[in-house]
Design a protein around this nucleic acid. Structure first.
Lengths: 319, 319
DNA sequence: GCAACTGCGGTCAGCTTCGGTCCGCAATTA
DNA sequence: TAATTGCGGACCGAAGCTGACCGCAGTTGC
């Protein structure tokens, strides 16, 4: 019965919009008898959704938390909020859920109506200014890549290699991985007949989708481990521009005040520690460290010391 | 047929997990004949979900974006990612969707299994260190208040008024409002028999839920406007410690680089502008402004100039 | 161009389920 | 105590569902 299914979904939706409904209210809304509502509630319960009911004059039905998450029925505004939230989470503003966020984002974007997609990107763009993290990546691109991995779709794109040479790549993507600082795409390069790890911020232009891809399992089975190993063996990795400072603060205290995703803290004697950036240093790193209210000393690279001097000049003039 | 409804939901779920399925695959998964799958697809289409199909050897079914968002079927990890993303969005890290995020969060938290709720709060706590925002608010509290407004539930809580006196409040909540800097609860105070605006960061201890509340409409109808007006008439407002700097950058360019949630930008001639914090100034405001690479000048308060000098000393020593 | 694969949709038969109506019961609140 | 609300059994006619079969049409790859 198509009507029944639709009604069950509508019922679930109503129960998510408001906490408490009486059977009569629900019956009116869905234009069926109260008895049918009772039966529908039973059906939902038998499907595993925990609907509680209380009798009496203040009674009613209420959907509560159960073992499984019921299908979420979001209105337009809520869907936009979810998408935007996932984008920022994917951008690395939260500890360890970047990859999951991208996965969820891929799922959402696949079914997101266009009008909402426009609203999402409008909001997303407005936020770009104060980024704290590594290289800025387009969340749309991430979602596209993740979807291609999931769906087994070929991808073609232009890629700028480490030597700044641009080449056209034809790939069968396997996984999208976040190193804690940068995003990587692990894929099988069909021209080179081997696996390659691509830095996503070095992908240029539009990514085009090809036909069906063969499924590949990354060597070793664990994409994250594979990327890590690739970065190690290929040398350079992210090491190029790491910033390091010495701080007059015991390491354990510093660790509490500096998120691990942001920098690594090594003790340097009892009273001091060395803080290293993940990936290339950026001026905001310097500034955050200065804000921690402990004496600091720039160790490397010289450019950071230079930046410190520039900031000093700027702030000195301001005060 | 309960089975049919369940299968339709499962079908929707499968179509969200992977992009392309052949009818046979779906039939195997759902343990029905291919003909039934075709019929189910038809049913979903007639319910408004745009399922595309392509014939041929590389064909299959695929759920695409339509006019309506279909029910989202998230797995555990994705649900956690969504919840965490909504929390940060609610915490004000995105421009204008704080209130919507809270609404969506309230919806999600109502049905979120406990085991996931624990994971969400664990992740949320890990992020607290480098906050950029105004007073820190517990996202759970926000969700609770928003849910109470939505459901018409009485709330009892301890509140610290502006004169630092704590009182016990019995309220019928109407709306949760974000000023761009602080969160407020508009509610009808049943003891005082009038509407009150509560700063949510001044609510102390646990919030207890009471019975059913009467529905009230905020005077004037628009909660946001009401809060604004209250803040104006009650004087003080957030004005206490606002920081202002002059920046050698045209206002329109500065606006693009400074999120509106973070500060307001007023032109000051053609080539310069005045940037004011929302709410009390904080040292990181000063620093962000310095990072924008334009000459700046602290206008007020003196304490900020003092902080600038301290930072200069710190950074000067570092370089 | 042919073969293989895929989706499409009609029809039939047997069966299940649906939904409305009626009923009395139990729990809760005012 | 009375009113309100949810619960669930029984009945019945109507409706929908599933699987099986069929031929058709569009796409891909050889």
């Amino acid at each position: 019965m198509i009507q029944t299914s639709a009604r069950l979904l509508a019922l679930l939706s109503l129960l998510q919009v408001r906490r408490e409904w009486t059977g009569q209210e629900l019956a009116d809304r869905l234009e069926v008898g109260p008895r049918t509502i009772r039966r529908d509630v039973d059906k939902l319960r038998s499907l595993g959704y925990p609907i509680e009911a209380s009798p009496g004059v203040a009674g009613g039905y209420r959907l509560s938390a159960g073992g499984e998450l019921p299908p979420l029925l979001l209105d337009d505004a809520e869907a936009v909020a979810v998408a935007v939230g996932l984008r920022t989470a994917a951008a690395g503003s939260i500890a360890g859920i970047e990859e999951t966020s991208v996965r969820a984002l891929a799922k959402l974007e696949q079914v997101l109506p266009n009008r909402l997609r426009r609203r999402v990107s409008a909001l997303g763009d407005a936020t770009s200014a104060f980024g704290v993290e590594g290289p800025r990546i387009d969340a749309d691109l991430l979602a596209t890549l993740a979807a291609a991995c999931r769906d087994g779709v070929r991808l073609h794109f232009a890629y700028v290699a480490r030597d700044e040479k641009t080449s056209r790549r034809n790939t069968e993507p396997c996984a999208v991985v976040y190193s804690g600082y940068r995003w990587y795409l692990v894929a099988f390069d069909t021209d080179r007949q081997d696996f390659r790890t691509f830095r996503i911020d070095r992908i240029r232009g539009r990514v085009r989708e090809g036909g069906r891809a063969h499924r590949h399992t990354v060597p070793g089975g664990d994409p994250a481990a594979y990327v890590k190993q690739q970065l190690r063996t290929s040398g350079a990795g992210d090491r190029a521009e790491i910033g390091r400072i010495r701080m007059q603060l015991p390491a354990d205290i510093a660790r509490k005040r500096i998120p691990a995703r942001y920098a690594t803290v090594e003790p340097d004697g009892e009273e001091a520690c060395v803080v290293s950036t993940r990936g290339a240093w950026r001026r905001d790193f310097l500034v955050w460290m200065a804000l921690l209210d402990a004496p600091i000393e720039v160790l490397e690279p010289p450019a950071m010391a230079e930046a410190a001097r520039a900031l000093v000049a700027r702030l000195g003039a301001a005060a």
